[in-house]
Structure formats: C-alpha cells, structure tokens
Simulated scan of single mutants.
Amino acid sequence: MLKLAVLVSGGGTNLQAIIDSIESGKVTNASVGVVISNNKNAYALERARKHGIEAVCISPKEYESRDAFNQAMLDYLEQAGIDLIVLAGYLVVVPEIIIEKFRNRIINIHPSLIPSFCGTGYYGLKVHEAALRRGVKVSGATVHFVDEGTDTGPIIMQKAVCVKSGDTPEVLQRRIMEEAEWVLLPAAIDAIANGRVHIHDGIVTVD
C-alpha cells in the first residue's frame, strides 16, 4: 500500500479528485496518509479532515530560517513513513534535501503540456493567460516527477484539452482541471502504486 503525502497551498480540488478516486476504487493500492499545507487557512486541510485524513500546516513562516523549515518538513515526511509525495497546487519550492531523499518519489501536476508554458513564473492563472496570449489551439495538463529544476522532471502522463474561441483564463483553467488534471493525477498515482511506471534514462514508460 502506497502511503501518500499530498502537499497543497489552496483549495485542494486536485486533492479532492485523489480522495474521491481512492474511495471509489479507481485508485488502488494507495492511501492518503497526510495532507500538508504551508497555509493554515487552506481549504484543502478541511477537505482532509472531512475524510478522516491527518491535516497539518508546516509553514516557512514558523521557522527561523528556510533551512530549518526544510529539515522540519523532511523529518515529518520520514517519520510519517511516506512513500510518494504529491504536489497538488503547492506554492513552496521543494528543497533539494527532500528531492534527493525522495528521488523519483515526488510528482507534480502542471496545467499545461510541458514544455509549453512551464518553468519559473508559470503557475495558476498565469499559465492560462500565457497560453491564450500565444493563441494555442490545444493546452492541457502534465504529471511529472519532480527534480531540482522547475517543471523539468521526467513526464509521466499528459492529456490535451481544446482551447475554445472566447475562452478567458478562468474558463480555460476550469476546463483543464475538469478534463485533464482531475483525471491525470489519480491515474498517475494508480499507475505508480501498482508498479506500472518505469524510468530509464530520464524517460518514463507506463505499462
């Protein structure tokens, strides 16, 4: 059984998709052990509590230095016996000490088809604003492993979503969430939990 830590800064819609998929049996061999947020007021923490999942706030603001925060986060994850870290709208940079310790055991969902509209500065609505400015006809979402770069880790799964005439960033964001993010993230977790994801020379294959 894969024990997940889901890290989230806001409302937690992707978290909800994971919880629903586990409870419905779409995702097997996995459970959410803890939901961690840097924001004590994040609704994601309430979502976790409603489903009997441990919910904790670990914020950089509570520590004297970023190194102290990073070490506290790593200590917590290790003590909790976490197998896979899932970044689901987490707006804190994951430190190298955690990436090293959880190599190829951290995944992230990004709301575009990487390598388009990704990297430093591309998060939230900014991704969709950039896509609409460029006039792309297709966008989507990507689940990837996390490495030391920003959105540069091996790609696990992608799903395309059509951009429609008249889309606003908010409308496109919602469509990508519903059609891609809430589908891909649970699917990737299920594939990892059941041993169907393999990495060779930085390329992922999924059985």
Score class of each variant (00 low, 15 high):
residue 45 L to Y: 12
residue 202 G to K: 05
residue 11 G to A: 13
residue 30 A to R: 12
residue 132 L to I: 06
residue 3 K to M: 11
residue 104 N to C: 00
residue 198 H to W: 07
residue 5 A to D: 13
residue 197 V to G: 05
residue 135 G to F: 02
residue 58 I to N: 01
residue 69 F to N: 02
residue 95 P to R: 03
residue 189 I to L: 01
residue 137 K to I: 11
residue 80 A to C: 11
residue 13 T to M: 01
residue 122 Y to N: 03
residue 187 A to K: 15
residue 93 V to Q: 13
residue 194 N to K: 14
residue 162 C to D: 14
residue 89 G to M: 08
residue 18 I to L: 15
residue 1 M to E: 13
residue 29 N to C: 01
residue 195 G to M: 06
residue 40 K to Q: 15
residue 181 E to D: 13
residue 173 Q to M: 04
residue 137 K to L: 12
residue 180 A to G: 12
residue 48 A to Q: 08
residue 205 T to V: 07
residue 115 P to M: 06
residue 98 I to Y: 10
residue 117 F to P: 07
residue 89 G to D: 10
residue 115 P to C: 03
residue 149 G to W: 04
residue 56 V to Y: 00
residue 100 E to V: 01
residue 77 L to R: 03
residue 59 S to F: 05
residue 182 W to L: 13
residue 23 E to D: 14
residue 162 C to Q: 12
residue 66 R to P: 09
residue 37 S to Y: 13
residue 11 G to P: 13
residue 170 E to M: 01
residue 203 I to E: 15
residue 92 V to A: 05
residue 122 Y to S: 03
residue 194 N to E: 12
residue 160 A to V: 11
residue 89 G to T: 10
residue 188 A to R: 06
residue 192 I to G: 04
residue 106 I to K: 02
residue 177 M to K: 06
residue 23 E to T: 14
residue 110 H to Y: 02
residue 78 E to L: 12
residue 82 I to F: 07
residue 85 I to W: 02
residue 16 Q to C: 05
residue 168 T to V: 08
residue 132 L to Y: 07
residue 82 I to V: 15
residue 84 L to N: 07
residue 173 Q to T: 09
residue 65 S to H: 11
residue 127 V to N: 05
residue 57 C to Q: 10
residue 114 I to S: 09
residue 48 A to Y: 08
residue 179 E to V: 05
residue 70 N to R: 01
residue 18 I to D: 06
residue 71 Q to P: 05
residue 85 I to Y: 02
residue 120 T to P: 00
residue 103 R to E: 12
residue 92 V to L: 05
residue 151 D to A: 07
residue 79 Q to R: 13
residue 60 P to L: 10
residue 126 K to R: 14
residue 6 V to E: 10
residue 133 R to T: 06
residue 76 Y to K: 10
residue 101 K to M: 02
residue 155 I to Y: 04
residue 76 Y to T: 08
residue 181 E to H: 08
residue 44 A to C: 12
residue 147 D to G: 07
residue 97 I to V: 10
residue 172 L to I: 05
residue 68 A to M: 03
residue 91 L to D: 04
residue 184 L to H: 03
residue 63 Y to C: 11
residue 129 E to I: 01
residue 48 A to S: 08
residue 2 L to N: 09
residue 201 D to Q: 15
residue 28 T to F: 00
residue 103 R to Y: 14
residue 164 K to F: 15
residue 42 A to M: 13
residue 130 A to C: 06
residue 9 S to V: 09
residue 13 T to D: 06
residue 125 L to G: 00
residue 109 I to Y: 01
residue 198 H to F: 14
residue 47 R to G: 10
residue 19 I to L: 10
residue 204 V to Y: 03
residue 185 L to Y: 12
residue 143 V to H: 02
residue 93 V to L: 15
residue 203 I to D: 14
residue 153 G to T: 07
residue 176 I to T: 04
residue 172 L to A: 02
residue 53 I to P: 00
residue 109 I to G: 06
residue 86 V to L: 08
residue 184 L to Y: 02
residue 53 I to E: 07
residue 104 N to V: 00
residue 146 V to C: 11
residue 68 A to G: 03
residue 92 V to D: 02
residue 137 K to W: 07
residue 57 C to S: 15
residue 153 G to N: 08
residue 3 K to L: 13
residue 142 T to F: 06
residue 120 T to F: 14
